[in-house]
Write a protein that binds this DNA or RNA. Structure first.
Lengths: 229, 229
DNA sequence: ACCTATTGCGTAAATTTGACACATATGGAT
DNA sequence: ATCCATATGTGTCAAATTTACGCAATAGGT
C-alpha cells in the first residue's frame, strides 16, 4: 500500500449566537468545482501539518476568524463520493464564537464570508449540511454536561442571555427560575456588580463565567450537569 | 494542493469482557517497521473504500473477527510523527465483543493474535497506548447513557454478570440492589425463565437484553441513563 | 398613579437517589 | 440432616434533587 490516493481535508463548523439565533460561518468559494457556492470554511491539510493546526489555519485564512473553542467533531469518510474531485475524507471540527467579537473578512479561497442562521441555511454542496447537522447535535448534547455555552456569549452577560441561549440551542422551553438556581448552585458565575437595562423591566445583574475556577473544580471531580423539565 | 502526501489508516480498539476483566484485541506485526511488536489490528484504507468498511476489513483479515458493535472513536493526526513511515493519520474505532463467541486467528499482516488484559498491556508502538486510553474513556462514559455494555456480554446473562461488567469498566463499587432496580425499571430485560447456578449461592435468573425494544423506546424519546453512588 | 415587562427570591409537592435489612435458595462441611 | 458460607431477590426509608409554581422588586411608558 504505497500509492494510496486519498486526500485529507478539515472542515470547521463554527457556531455563533446573537439575539436569540444560532448562526454558522460560511464562505463563498472563489475557485474549484463549487465556485460561487457557500461552503464550510475548510480545506486540505498540508504535509506534516497537525490537524488542529490545519483547521485553525484554514479558518483564519478564509474568514479572518480565530475561535477560542475548537474541538474535533467527526471524520466523514464513509461516502466515497462526497467530493466530486475524488476520494477525500474530511475531519470536521466544532467551533464556538461570539460574532460581536469577530471581524469576519473573506480571503484566499473565499470571495465572501457570512453568518447564516441555522434554520435558514442554503443547500450546501458536498455533505456539508450533514456535517452541520452533526455539529448541532454535538452542541445540543454537550451543553448539558459542559459549560461550553459561555463561549457563545460575550465575557459579560445577564442571566436572561444565558437562558435564551439554552432555549435557542435546545429548541425547548426552560423554567427561568429553576435554571437560574441550578446554574448558580455551581458557583461558577461571579457578579461584576453592574446592572444592565434591557429596555423595559427590571435591570439584570451582569455576570462573568469563571473559567479558571471551572478548570480547578473539574480536575477535582466536579461535574457540570444540567437537566431540563 | 494537488500532491498531498498524507496516508490514511484505521485502527480498531476492540474490547472484550470475560470473568471480571476487560481485554483488548492486539496482533503481532508480521511485516513493517514494527515487525514482531504487538499493535492494534488496523491498517491503511484503500482507494475508494469507506472508512467503516476499511476497519471491518482489517479486523477480519488480521484477526478473523467480526464485531457487532463498531463506532468511530477519534481521528489521531495532531502528532505528525506518530508513525515513523511518514505523515499518517489514523481514524480510530471502538469495538465491543464477547470473546467467547469469537474465534481469533492470525492472518495476513499478523503473525499472532491475542486478548490482552487492559491493565497489563505491553508498551505499544506508535500512539497505540494513547488510542486505547481514549477508547477506554469513551467506553466508561458511554455505558452511563447507552446500553452498550450488553455487547460485551453473551446473549444470556445473570444479573451479577451485568453488575460485575459495570464494576470492571468503571473501576468502582456499585450497590447491587440499587443497580438492579434501576436497570429493571427500564423494562429492557426479559427473563428467559431459566436459572443459572453460579457455583455456590442462590442461582440467578437468566436475562436477555431486548435490543428491538430499546430501538423503539429510543426513537420515541426514551433515554437510557444510569448514575452510581 | 397605574400598567406592563423583566428580574430576583422562595416554597412545597413529586420524584429520584442512596444506604441499608432481610428473606430465599444453593453447595459444602460436620 | 444441620449448620454455615455465599449469592440472589425484594423492600423500606431518609436525603437529595427536580419540578411547578407564587410573589415581591425594579424599571419604562402612559
Amino acid at each position: 500500500m504505497d500509492s494510496q490516493n486519498i486526500k485529507v481535508a478539515v472542515d470547521p463548523v463554527v457556531f455563533g449566537y446573537e439575539n436569540g439565533s444560532l448562526f454558522i460561518l460560511l464562505i463563498k468559494q472563489k475557485y474549484g468545482p463549487m465556485k460561487g457556492k457557500w461552503v464550510l470554511p475548510g480545506g486540505f491539510v498540508k504535509d506534516n501539518e497537525p490537524l488542529s493546526v490545519a483547521v485553525a489555519r484554514e479558518l483564519k485564512e478564509e474568514t479572518n476568524v480565530t475561535v477560542d473553542y475548537l474541538e474535533q467533531l467527526f471524520t466523514f469518510g464513509d461516502d466515497v463520493n462526497r467530493d466530486p474531485r475524488g476520494h477525500i475524507i474530511s475531519i470536521a471540527y466544532l467551533g464556538l464564537a461570539n460574532p460581536k467579537q469577530l471581524d469576519i473578512q473573506a480571503n484566499t479561497d473565499a470571495s465572501d464570508v457570512n453568518w447564516f442562521e441555522i434554520n435558514k441555511l442554503p443547500q450546501l454542496p458536498f455533505d456539508h449540511n450533514q456535517i452541520i447537522k452533526k455539529g448541532l447535535e454535538r452542541l445540543q448534547s454537550k451543553v448539558h454536561y459542559k459549560p461550553i455555552g459561555f463561549d457563545l456569549l460575550g465575557d459579560e452577560f445577564v442571566f436572561s442571555d444565558l437562558e435564551n441561549l439554552y432555549r435557542t440551542i435546545l429548541q425547548k422551553e426552560i423554567d427561568r427560575r429553576n435554571f437560574r438556581k441550578k446554574i448558580l448552585s455551581f458557583g461558577l458565575l461571579e457578579e461584576t456588580g453592574e446592572l444592565r437595562k434591557t429596555g423595559s423591566g427590571r435591570p439584570g445583574a451582569v455576570y462573568r463565567f469563571n473559567k479558571r475556577k471551572y478548570s480547578q473544580l473539574e480536575s477535582s471531580g466536579f461535574h457540570f450537569d444540567i437537566k431540563f423539565a
